[in-house]
Design a protein around this nucleic acid. Sequence first.
DNA 1: CCTCTCTAAGCGAACGTTCGCCTTAAGAAT
DNA 2: ATTCTTAAGGCGAACGTTCGCTTAGAGAGG
Lengths: 349, 349
Amino acid sequence: MFKSVTLKEVAAEAGVSYQTVSKVINNKANVSPETEKRIWQVIADLNYTPNYRGRSLRRQRSNTIGYTWEPSPPEQTNPILDSFLHSMFRAAEEKGYYMLCFPFHADDARMLQVYQQLYNTGRVDGFILSRLNYDESSVPYLLENKIPFVGFGRLDDHDQSFPYMDVDGGNGIAQAMDHLVSLGHRKIAALAWPENSRVGNNRLEGYFTGLATAGLRRNPNLIMRGEGTLEVGFEATSHLLNLPEEIRPTAIVCMNDMMAIGAMQAIRSVGLQPGRDIGVTGFDDSPTARYLNPPLTSISQPIPTIGENLMKRLIDYLETGTYQEPRCELIAPKLEIRESTMGYVPAKG
Amino acid sequence: MFKSVTLKEVAAEAGVSYQTVSKVINNKANVSPETEKRIWQVIADLNYTPNYRGRSLRRQRSNTIGYTWEPSPPEQTNPILDSFLHSMFRAAEEKGYYMLCFPFHADDARMLQVYQQLYNTGRVDGFILSRLNYDESSVPYLLENKIPFVGFGRLDDHDQSFPYMDVDGGNGIAQAMDHLVSLGHRKIAALAWPENSRVGNNRLEGYFTGLATAGLRRNPNLIMRGEGTLEVGFEATSHLLNLPEEIRPTAIVCMNDMMAIGAMQAIRSVGLQPGRDIGVTGFDDSPTARYLNPPLTSISQPIPTIGENLMKRLIDYLETGTYQEPRCELIAPKLEIRESTMGYVPAKG
DNA sequence: CCTCTCTAAGCGAACGTTCGCCTTAAGAAT
DNA sequence: ATTCTTAAGGCGAACGTTCGCTTAGAGAGG
């Protein structure tokens, strides 16, 4: 095994006590300029880097942030995982931190135990949570045990109980609605998620906002709910297309891209053309969205900004003991307009 | 901050020296059954877990494995990342290990420095590398510095210089070829990668094997090369479809799914139907493959098996000091047959 | 000449473990 | 009665840091 250079070796070489070397490294030195220079020189010569284990034990700090996430089912892919992770990695490294990733457990109690364990044993200094929903048990648990964390997402729309960043999904869908309305659509359907999904409800709010802004009435027949899968998108859209002419939608706003893909397939399966005959929008702006046929208008979340910001915020808290204001931040997504909403010609007028 | 329970507190409560408690925990005890039982009881009562930092310093072990990977460009998605990571996380946790993830750096020297640093400071005990190519500088570096690691992928086809697992891409493509030949295809094109891609060349080998098995001649006009993107797939296929009738391919084997998607779009853009008129196969079996129109025949890699196996192999080495045989393992992928190769009717007989 | 202050650096202790050797007492063997 | 063995557990040291207090020596002020 590799024997790495220690403080003592540096000290011996520089002709000082090892504690003095430590002080120089940590800028706590009362040392003459020449001595300091000599010490730095030796550090460079021997290629010394402080041992993480010793430092961590003494400082009672691990400089490590824990993170886990629920893995996607095999037939789906997580479009934001890669960039979210890397944005956090980079922000952490910049501050001398690293991320410890650990497996997700569906069993809540087990998951809490893992959080507790990682923190109590000193493996991590805090956590980043993501994809929070109403019933997230980890949030109250971590708060109660005073374990530092920040979240991507919140528990409900007016929650301020812990520091987070979140995408304002409602804002995004409202942008999509305005866009569709401006193209002349008046009968707009929504493919929404089950009512127990906080993210889903947040997005659906944007649908309602969009209707209100345009002075349109809510029509319960045009709101379909289900899991955010291609199949649900297909079925729901098939149903919508079978509605009588006078209420049949001319545009469909989907709460994610998978549903939108299903919707476009359903539209094509009855001989219509997505974009020209029926406008379709998605959410997430998955990498594949632009490659669909037609390319899908979707809503993109500034994932790297969020990852970087969350990490910086958590580290800043760990080092200062207080959270920067604003503790809770909502950030607007961006509508990416593509052909799945272009080419529509309103029936009359 | 949280003050966690220490050995000394357990010892005081149990009325023994703290070293004895340590011995009990590590099964190195010469202790009477009653004492041992009492100690375990106290441990449970106080909810004691050994402090990672102290243990790690003393044992000179971090029980942590490092991993990084090159992030996908924004317009692409890494279809295997999520399940690969989670399979490693799970295997690690089972053995009391965790993964430290750190940012990828395109600059080679910088990257090597990070590896060195993480290892020398005692943050990690070893690494897992992935997506290795011919010119991978990390492999010789880690070998030379005796830093433990295992790889997903190898440097060249007969490489045995370090322990790895790899998917036999050639085997996969050969399966696809056999499948196409059995359907009656005789003119089969390949959308291959640039010649400096080891993975690409390995897969292309399978194309040649398939031709040989079927007794077909290689036709340089039917081998197109380029980046594994949708655009390249589209352009290359458009070119192939413009070839004179007698050599124009009836099937196209693509080295990944993105190219296959591009190929199918090109086929459709000239009024033909993928699957019925021209067979198309991909590689990776991305989650979206089954949702394409038509669903794409592709080759799926047993990612979770690989992740689990790599992790176990590395940990086993760290704990025993020798690698299990076989040190290098090649594992066959699986052909997933879908409609993009079905429905073809050979022209004559 | 004595005290005081300041600078530069040393020193002991502590963080929470694990490791190897030592001690004690009891019983067995001589 | 003396020595030997064994079981049960104690003890000091070490892993590589950082922290806070102490000290040696020089120069200033009275």
